Amino acid sequence: MLGADLLPGNAVYMSVGNRVEKARADEEDRARVVGLCSRASSPEGRVDIQMRGVLALTVAEWDAVAGTDGGLKTGRRYFLSETTPGAIVATAPEKVGNYVVAVGIAISATEMELKRGIPHLL
């Protein structure tokens, strides 16, 4: 896949031209998460996307995309952010007009079982 400026753990969607972009829960097309980046995009724009299974990243990598301190919180569900492109959050969006999109469940501070959901409009 091709995409630019993507970090490990960023939630992405497919855009035109077979590219991936940072997903966000404030617009239907951008809320269609296809997976999470398993590593940062290369200088050439190549990126690896994980669509299912368990994604293991470092505590620092999860902190960067989930806004956490100390990695993921075990047992907590994570959702696509409605404000920060590519970010995931532990609280489902609540603003009318945005989308709730499940991303996965933390099974440890460094591992998430991906459980992508379809976007649900609020």
Rank of each mutant, 00 (worst) to 15 (best):
residue 1 M to K: 07
residue 1 M to T: 07
residue 4 A to M: 05
residue 4 A to I: 10
residue 8 P to K: 05
residue 9 G to T: 00
residue 10 N to H: 03
residue 10 N to G: 01
residue 14 M to F: 12
residue 17 G to T: 12
residue 18 N to T: 15
residue 18 N to Q: 13
residue 19 R to M: 14
residue 20 V to Y: 06
residue 20 V to R: 02
residue 21 E to S: 11
residue 22 K to L: 14
residue 23 A to W: 06
residue 27 E to C: 11
residue 28 E to A: 07
residue 29 D to W: 12
residue 29 D to E: 13
residue 31 A to R: 10
residue 31 A to W: 06
residue 32 R to D: 13
residue 32 R to F: 05
residue 34 V to L: 13
residue 38 S to G: 12
residue 41 S to C: 04
residue 41 S to G: 08
residue 41 S to I: 02
residue 44 E to Y: 01
residue 47 V to A: 07
residue 47 V to D: 01
residue 50 Q to K: 10
residue 52 R to A: 11
residue 55 L to S: 03
residue 62 W to D: 02
residue 63 D to P: 11
residue 65 V to R: 00
residue 65 V to S: 03
residue 66 A to M: 11
residue 67 G to P: 10
residue 68 T to I: 13
residue 69 D to H: 14
residue 74 T to Y: 09
residue 76 R to A: 13
residue 77 R to C: 10
residue 77 R to F: 14
residue 78 Y to H: 08
residue 81 S to W: 06
residue 82 E to D: 15
residue 82 E to Y: 06
residue 82 E to L: 08
residue 83 T to P: 05
residue 84 T to H: 04
residue 87 A to E: 07
residue 87 A to P: 05
residue 87 A to Q: 07
residue 88 I to A: 06
residue 89 V to L: 08
residue 92 A to Y: 03
residue 93 P to K: 06
residue 95 K to A: 01
residue 95 K to T: 02
residue 95 K to C: 01
residue 96 V to A: 05
residue 96 V to M: 03
residue 96 V to L: 02
residue 96 V to H: 05
residue 102 A to E: 07
residue 103 V to P: 07
residue 105 I to K: 14
residue 105 I to V: 13
residue 106 A to G: 09
residue 106 A to Y: 14
residue 107 I to E: 07
residue 109 A to D: 15
residue 109 A to S: 15
residue 112 M to T: 05
residue 117 G to P: 06
residue 119 P to L: 02
residue 122 L to H: 00
